[in-house]
Design a binder for these strands. Structure first.
Lengths: 107, 107
DNA sequence: TTGACATGCAACCGTTTAGTTGCATATTAT
DNA sequence: ATAATATGCAACTAAACGGTTGCATGTCAA
């Protein structure tokens, strides 16, 4: 799961996911036409996304079509984010208590 | 929002969030006792988490209590993850189509 | 079969990152 | 007042990262 977190940490790679979200199954050349990144840069980013399973490449002759895979993001959501989401009210109450114990002088 | 993505990209910082999730409002010294990280390392990580608003520090005398703030994660969830979640079925169909157009020979 | 096209690979460079070490500051307790 | 405690700050190092350049490989089309 760490590979996914690292992969989505870069704005360029998130932009890349957005592109595939708009039009799935694009080639490397198509992607770098829209993204004002060099081919090599895009290629490296796609490699990182593929290693994180966020992108699945399919060879079609000399072209490599890139497909977005939503499963890793769902795992992040269910196995990580939700844990904090469920107790977020509790966390905010804790914070409020901390503030209450501190602020009386500042009134 | 980029600061949040970068903040949660590091496993040590995610561990730190987990600690605060278990017990909110801990001090720097308490946190590095449980985490087998040096004090300076934890301190730097807390700085990054605080700059991303994931942690809110409150001074109490010479102690600094650290509170987890769930709001940025909720924003990630609602303004970023959900976009992909909603169209995840579509993405999987696209991928299946790509596979179908390729695999007949491999049967 | 040859030239154009799509991509990969490897070396390199500058910057950022995570982490350490050493010292400084401020607060509490004796 | 002084010693112990809690934290901050600055400089430094090693590794990772994002990006570029140059060349190699494989596929299609004339």
């Amino acid at each position: 799961m760490n590979a996914v977190f690292r992969a989505i940490a870069d704005p360029g790679r998130r932009e890349l996911l957005d592109q595939l979200h708009i039009a799935n199954g694009q080639t490397l050349t198509q992607l770098c036409q829209r993204l004002s990144m060099s081919r090599q840069a895009v290629s490296k980013h796609l490699g990182i996304l593929a290693r994180a399973d966020l992108v699945i490449p399919l060879w079609r002759g000399r072209e490599k079509l890139h497909y977005f895979n939503p499963i890793p993001l769902r795992r992040i959501s269910e196995q990580w984010l939700d844990k904090y989401e469920l107790s977020s009210a509790r966390a905010l109450i804790d914070l409020q208590r901390g503030l209450d114990a501190l602020e009386p002088k500042e009134q």
